[in-house]
């Protein structure tokens, strides 16, 4: 689900949306001018709460060696996940278009995991996030329901139709565009910290509540993917956090381990997760407590690397 529900579009967001659609025409060339344009719509790093953003390499402040290492590590992760998202989505889309419901259902949670891992980055590219991952109740009047969650509904609720194929084609086009954008994305350490917080907020509001995957109940795949994205960003920052606040770094590490341990109880097979409907109230409470604990510590990371 997009981090900002579509109906609460802020003026800034509207501006970036307009910019994004203008940018779509030139983006294929991925010129330096395009990158600069991109950085113009992201917030400056003096903003205490900048949205995780892709910023032009020429525009950002110069980084320390430690910061460069952190951001380039994370950059590689983003590129790899974006590429995997394309591959996974290709297979998923092929299954949908072939009318192979059971294969499509099996591919759905793992294909979109790659999106969930880098969702805050996707959220900085105009309206790609709502187009790929928007929920029906997040639509504004006149908008059509597409993307992964539309196909989720088709697969689990309404059944595949000819319209599903069109939605699938559009999804693949959007995902490919996202991957292209991601190739040129660069980050500041604060973007990593804020991005990890955004993922944790998503997990608390959408995943641990079972709201995201209303029809498929594959919320734990998203939960695990969000967590992976978050821990990767924070791991890249660990040397910086340790340098300024070693106690915080230790707390983050401890609580990450504790959360992963709780989550691991819900594994099925080698790389699957239990259906959300199989969780008891107690399970959900336990996950939520571990997530709160981790989030409370992780939220301090931004101050430590700022």
């Amino acid at each position: 689900m997009p981090l900002l529900p579509a109906r609460r579009v802020t003026p800034r967001r509207l501006a970036s949306r307009r910019l994004a659609s203008r940018r779509l025409a030139v983006v294929a060339t991925a010129t330096m001018a395009g990158a600069a344009l991109l950085s113009a719509c992201s917030t400056s790093s003096a903003d205490p709460n900048p949205a995780p953003s892709a910023s032009g390499t020429t525009a950002g402040p110069t980084q320390s060696a430690q910061a460069r290492k952190a951001t380039s590590t994370y950059q590689r992760y983003v590129k790899a996940e974006a590429a995997a998202l394309v591959t996974g989505t290709e297979q998923f889309v092929a299954a949908v278009k072939a009318g192979d419901t059971s294969r499509a259902k099996a591919l759905y949670p793992t294909a979109r995991s790659h999106f969930e891992r880098i969702e805050p980055v996707a959220a900085s590219f105009g309206d790609l996030d709502p187009r790929i991952d928007g929920r029906e109740d997040g639509l504004e009047e006149g908008e059509t329901f597409g993307g992964y969650h539309r196909l989720e509904k088709d697969l689990w609720r309404t059944g595949l139709t000819a319209e599903s194929s069109r939605v699938a084609d559009q999804l693949l086009a959007d995902v490919e565009l996202l991957a292209k954008e991601a190739q040129g994305a660069t980050f500041q350490p604060i973007d990593l910290a804020n991005g990890s917080k955004a993922l944790l907020d998503e997990m608390a509001s959408g995943k641990v509540t079972g709201e995201e995957e209303r029809y498929s109940h594959t919320d734990l795949y998203d939960f695990a993917a969000n967590l992976d994205g978050c821990t990767t960003a924070l791991a890249a920052l660990t040397p910086m956090i340790t340098a300024s606040d070693p106690t915080l770094a230790a707390t983050i590490a401890d609580r990450q381990k504790a959360l992963e341990k709780v989550l691991a109880q819900h594994r099925t097979g080698r790389d699957g997760w239990q259906s959300y409907t199989a969780l008891t109230d107690r399970d959900v409470k336990e996950l939520s407590a571990a997530l709160d604990a981790y989030s409370e510590a992780a939220a301090q990371a931004a101050a430590a690397v700022a």
């Binding site: 609580r255 409470k285 407590a289 571990a290 709160d292 604990a293 981790y294 409370e296 510590a297």
Partner: peptide, 9 residues
């Protein structure tokens, strides 16, 4: 309550 995350729920 907030101070207690990770210890109490």
């Amino acid at each position: 309550v907030r101070m207690g995350f990770g210890v109490v729920q």
